[in-house]
């Protein structure tokens, strides 16, 4: 992911109650910023969590996740009016 003005920051959020703990995202993450937890969610599965920093927004975890809404990747912009257009880019 390249930058236009400044380096974009990303943030990945994993819904604990939607994760089934299959570890696909953990295996797929190229930066190894996802880890498996030991707690159980309300379905009784252990769930993955984000270590807090280092996400590059590559979408590997999102597309590897079999659940529709367990993984959400946010783009964080520091300036208030940073509007980056949504584009259908092929990711790595």
């Amino acid at each position: 992911m390249t930058d236009k003005k400044k380096v974009k920051k990303y943030f990945v959020k994993i819904e604990p109650d939607e994760c089934k703990g299959c570890e696909r995202c953990v295996n797929a993450c190229p930066k190894a910023v996802l880890k498996m937890g030991t707690e159980l969610n309300f379905m009784g599965f252990p769930f993955a969590y984000y270590v807090g920093a280092g996400c590059v927004g590559c979408s590997a975890c999102f597309y590897n996740c079999p659940e529709p809404g367990a993984v959400t990747i946010f783009e964080v912009s520091d300036d208030a009016d940073g509007d980056s257009e949504k584009e259908e880019d092929e990711e790595d």
């Binding site: 990303y10 943030f11 959400t72 964080v76 912009s77 980056s84």
Partner: peptide, 17 residues
């Protein structure tokens, strides 16, 4: 990190569902 107005969903739950 806390959620704020500067966070924009890049990849999230599809509108097809």
């Amino acid at each position: 990190m806390t959620e704020n107005t500067n966070m924009k969903v890049k990849y999230g739950r599809s509108k097809g569902f």
